[in-house]
């Protein structure tokens, strides 16, 4: 169940209250997010749409602990992250967040296997355990046979699959996807969205997706519109506002 009116109870996986974010650009103050409330339950698949500059990526960065709000609170799985220090926030991020970026952001000098292994280097897993996890993640995204390829040897869609494997390998609490299909052709984009669908449906992942692509957004259980820093409407993708399809 997804709510934007602040009426969610304490059981929400992600709970946002009164979130403000302001930037200073020269003498001008830009109010990107204004008093935003949001509740997302475990297993939800939420898409955020809105025009450029509406605050979608800023919201995602705040939810992922990459940035701090000017005001308001974000609570994820019971941890309020808005008051965590830099080091603790980094540790929290490693444990709870899987990022998927538009530009894939793989390390070009590492193989697919090594890229996916990165988050596991921060854990206490042994080498053989890490290997097992990485192989599983790459098989989930359908790249079990491309483990030792470098990003330059992969297509855009395959690179994004590696990025997804990297995002899920440490079994994070939720996935944050920032326009994951924005750099792909339609066919590859559909394949990526199929994969994200599967992660939600079969693996119970919670996914928060920012996109400009209405086709991709339509896959979400819930579509939220962000405009001028405010979540102005919330409705079921393809039908009415409220919750899950």
């Amino acid at each position: 169940m997804v709510r934007v009116d602040g009426s969610g109870n304490g059981s929400s996986l992600v709970r946002v209250r009164g979130l403000d974010k302001k930037y200073q650009r020269g003498s001008e103050e830009i109010h990107v997010l204004q008093g935003l409330n949001l509740d997302v339950d475990r297993g939800d698949f939420v898409a955020f749409m809105g025009p450029s500059g509406s605050g979608k990526t800023t919201l995602l960065n705040l939810l992922g602990g990459l940035d701090l709000p000017t005001r308001g609170t974000i609570t994820v799985a019971g941890d309020e992250i808005t008051h965590l220090s830099g080091g603790k926030l980094t540790t929290w991020r490693a444990r709870h967040v899987g990022f998927i970026f538009q530009m894939y952001n793989l390390i070009p000098v590492l193989t697919a296997f090594q890229n996916v292994e990165l988050p596991l280097l921060l854990t206490r897993l042994s080498k053989s355990e890490r290997k097992q996890h990485v192989e599983t993640a790459l098989q989930v995204v359908g790249l079990g046979d491309r483990m030792h390829h470098y990003p330059r040897q992969l297509s855009g869609g395959q690179e994004q699959r590696v990025a997804i494997a990297r995002a899920i390998v440490a079994d994070p609490t939720f996935l944050l996807c920032d326009e994951p299909t924005g750099d792909l052709d339609r066919k590859s984009a559909d394949e990526i969205m199929d994969l994200i669908d599967r992660l939600v449906a079969e693996h119970g992942k919670t996914v928060l997706l920012v996109t400009h692509d209405p086709v991709a957004a339509a896959r979400a259980h819930t579509l939220l519109h962000l405009d001028k820093g405010v979540l102005v409407e919330a409705h079921r993708a393809g039908s009415t506002a409220g919750g899950r399809n």
Binding site: G64, L66, T90, A94, I107
Partner: peptide
């Protein structure tokens, strides 16, 4: 930046 995003410290 990506290394930091996935949890590597400063």
């Amino acid at each position: 930046a990506v290394l930091k995003a996935v949890g590597f410290s400063d």
